[in-house]
Design a binder for these strands. Structure first.
Lengths: 145, 145
DNA sequence: TTATTCCTTACCAAATAAGTCTGGTTAATG
DNA sequence: CATTAACCAGACTTATTTGGTAAGGAATAA
């Protein structure tokens, strides 16, 4: 039970947009190169995220994509459901099973949804920034005293 | 993001086995008819559940399948991972992303796993029994006073 | 008006999912 | 000990989904 490549691309792209939030728009090409995502595939993906209300875009030169909301207003679960559709554990059980099993699974579904919704893109960004700091040689600040 | 047909079949079958726990073995054919699951498909599925340690079986006449453990020792998450493999949100990120995103997702993964593991087959069985009682006309008990 | 970028649609190949078919192996029973 | 009822194992089929490509249209800054 692993994540689809598409979802991983989406998280990756959203992370990058989150790190650059409030700077300029980022073109699909730039983002694709930076994050090693197949260009045309990313294009469709970002559009899908736009339709879900998570990204926004501008055409023409210096255009590109950007987050539609501040990172702390975007939950990881929002990215999941934008890409894979909403978490739904109850659909598809036959009528008899709908009550017998469906009701029961509705509770589990709620817990899973909650697990995905407690963390935000903001938190992912913070985590990523911390990683970057640790992995890079400490910057030599000019030393005033 | 819905459940696969296979997983639904599995839950359904395990529920039936749970309801019949400590009675005789149930043949694949009987179970398939009772729960409207394609026979040969169910056969493979029950075998898979057996390999995961959730069911046990006996061959020959009057043989069939049964739970390998009491229903309260089987968590819903156990059925999930027996069928779909263990929940794994971290695999498949590139080396760079492994720390940047993987670590972060490990926590989410833990929460999801927990959501699936807090409920047991026992609880599902109780719920199903309650449903059955409600849906059936109340049995006319002999009245002693 | 032109270069740059998003947007739309259609298409393709490979993998997975869902399900079938055939034949073998085990074990209870008369 | 033959028969029969069941599980077991594998190859095979078909349809859907996934991951990805290609080509052209529409908007916008310079």
């Amino acid at each position: 039970m692993h994540l689809s490549a598409k979802l991983k691309y989406a998280v990756c792209a959203m992370l990058e947009l989150g790190l650059q939030y409030q700077n300029q728009f980022i073109s699909v090409t730039t983002l694709a190169e930076k994050r090693c995502i197949p260009g045309p595939f990313l294009e469709k993906l970002l559009l899908q995220l736009k339709h879900a209300g998570l990204t926004t875009s501008r055409r023409g030169p210096d255009g590109g994509y950007s987050l539609a909301l501040p990172p702390d207003k975007i939950r990881i679960g929002d990215i999941f459901s934008a890409v894979e559709g909403p978490v739904n554990f109850t659909k598809g059980f036959e009528t008899q099973e709908a009550t017998e099993i469906g009701d029961f699974f509705a509770e589990i579904e709620k817990d899973v949804r909650e697990a995905l919704n407690t963390k935000t893109l903001q938190e992912l960004c913070c985590h990523a920034r911390k990683c970057k700091q640790l992995s890079q040689p400490p910057h030599q600040h000019p030393f005033f005293i």
